[in-house]
Amino acid sequence: MEQVSQHADPHYDQEANKLGMWLFIFTELLLFGGLFIVYSIYRFLNPEAFQLGAHELNPTIGAINTIILLVSSMTIAMSTSSLQKKNKGLTVLLLEITIMLALVFLINKYFEWGVKFDHGIWPGSEHLINDMSRGEILFFGLYFVMTGLHALHIIVGMIIIIVALKRVQNGTVNENRSSLLDNAGLYWHLVDLIWIFLFPLFYLIH
């Protein structure tokens, strides 16, 4: 099926790089998977409290961020196509758009968390512990952990995309050696994929 090929350049194997990235993505999925297990158990144990907690979140901001991520996923997917079509200028442009969208996502997230902090809600805050039910404490604990970890992945993804962008510009990533860009794309789609589940589970369950 997949026989080993002796490449002209023994140190570059596109399929190996792709497989490696996929395996890494599996570990990331299981990392978030652990959190989804925690979420599903506690939601099962505290259904009302989780609905109350979700009312505190702003679905509009969540929806805007969803759209941003989906669009950015498209732009980076397109950039891999444009690299294959040897259109370097368009590739660079699409990557820049992706990075900008990621930045907007983070700014939104910053304000969203800021509003929570203004309401006295943060992990271990007095308002949370004294005035709210245990289910709500869990809801917000998980909210901060899961969106926070996701935001961390956004930042890492941005760094990878920036590196890929530089490499596209100086030509070390090109249509014959596109692994870095392809893998940056895969990673970015992973971030998107996780958000696709985070969004309804936190914002849409009232």
Binding site: S73, D182, G185, H189, L193, I196, F197
Partner: peptide, 11 residues
């Protein structure tokens, strides 16, 4: 949605 992302965006 995730199937769409996996099949097309992630190739």
């Amino acid at each position: 949605k995730s199937v769409l992302v996996l099949y097309w965006f992630m190739h």
